[in-house]
Design a protein around this nucleic acid. Structure first.
Lengths: 227, 227
DNA sequence: AGGCTCTATGTTGTTAACAGTTAACAATAT
DNA sequence: ATATTGTTAACTGTTAACAACATAGAGCCT
């Protein structure tokens, strides 16, 4: 019989159990509810209701909310409970400014550290995005775009930077005025990607930082103008 | 690791409850213990012990630790509890890189937004720091330096930026190889301040960003060389 | 009707007890 | 002596109950 495979899955399950406390599961669940919009900005998070829904007690949910509070996704009011954070225009702009600075840093670091292989990988992604843009395939473009930025972030090799960037992106989900890239802007967005790649290939840190910064700013403009 | 004096104020504040929640008080208390070094990197945080010491139950302490975990001050291990985060050299360097980028952003924003009054205020602080440096008054210099940076941050008018910057500074307290500015470097540090002010007065965003960035990098160098 | 107090109800804040896990140590076997 | 296996104590994970607070609505007064 399958002795090996059986014990492996047992090991995996033990590992899962080790790392997955109810708190961490609740946190991920609530976070997903927020990011997907099942819970939208301003909604109250009812501890008891969530607890019964998840078949757990309120303790882990409270702990999860504390964590999400520091992440900027939840606002805790004493004796009133947790609300999904409401994001105003000016707060979103502030976040985008920080995002811009961090993205510029990614560019600088990439020029220092990126291998030729990584740059080729990025080039491939840009090509694929071009194809997706040609075909007006919004979903593919969105997914490839995420991959593109994740790949750059990985290449920058700075764990703190990656965590903060992630945090910011999650928070920006709270600011949904048609959050996605508009059809027709795909080629414009990808042209910026090409421009970035050019700077990376030439190992020009200043240009890479500037073009990535511009890219973020342009994304903000596209988002705002989509109203 | 066991020093009563540090937490007395926290205990007192627990007395006047109901205005703040026990969780927030516990969080501040633990945070202070970490930042002041009463709890040092790697130390285990014993929930029960802290609870009895504060005369509260474990619940609020657990919630506080969840929040501090996301702040990067605490590391939670399932079934083992919370440890004060240990910061390696490379992690500190990563944080400094992010700090550098954020500080550069402060410079850009200041050039856009700073009133003349604020610039004069900053000038005054630089003058006072010069005096403190002349007198080798390390404590005054440290305090004024904090004020200087806080004033700039306030002038930048970006709440998210301020929060992230604060987070990073707190985390860097975990990396103590003689954390403070060395005697004798005070004048060097303040010369950089003057250089920054020059760029601000001329409303030169690029120069301000660059000089603030250099200032952070120089601070890192001073810290490293102090071993 | 408008405004007030006061109760009723639901929700959160806090606690204490229970269950599960870990880690250190003693006991046993090799 | 070393390694392995009980055994125990301490601690964390989780739950459920209780206390404090906030809010909505009934009743009352003018």
């Amino acid at each position: 019989m399958k002795k090996e495979s059986g014990s492996v899955s047992a090991l995996e399950r033990i590992g899962q159990r080790r790392s997955n406390t109810l708190t961490s599961i609740a946190k991920e669940a609530i976070e997903e509810m927020i990011v997907t919009g099942e819970l939208s900005a301003g909604d109250r998070i009812n501890e008891s209701a969530l607890a019964t829904r998840f078949n757990i007690s309120r303790g882990p949910i409270r702990e999860a909310c504390r964590s999400l509070e520091h992440a900027g996704l939840v606002r805790n009011v004493a004796n009133q409970g947790a609300y999904v954070r409401e994001m105003q225009l000016d707060e979103a702009r502030d976040l985008y400014e920080v995002r811009q600075a961090l993205t510029a840093l990614v560019g600088q670091l990439l020029v220092e550290k990126a291998s030729d292989a990584l740059i080729e990988e990025l080039d491939r992604l840009v090509e694929q995005m071009e194809k997706a843009a040609d075909e007006d395939d919004l979903d593919s473009y969105y997914s490839l775009n995420l991959q593109f930025h994740d790949t750059m972030m990985a290449g920058a090799g700075n764990a703190s930077l990656a965590r903060y960037y992630d945090d910011i992106v999650k928070q920006l989900h709270l600011f949904r005025r048609r959050g996605l890239v508009q059809r027709g802007n795909l080629h414009a967005s990808n042209a910026e990607h090409r421009h970035i790649m050019e700077a990376l290939r030439q190992r020009d840190a200043t240009a890479a930082a500037e073009r990535l910064s511009d890219h973020v700013m342009a994304g903000w403009q596209r988002m705002i103008e989509a109203t």
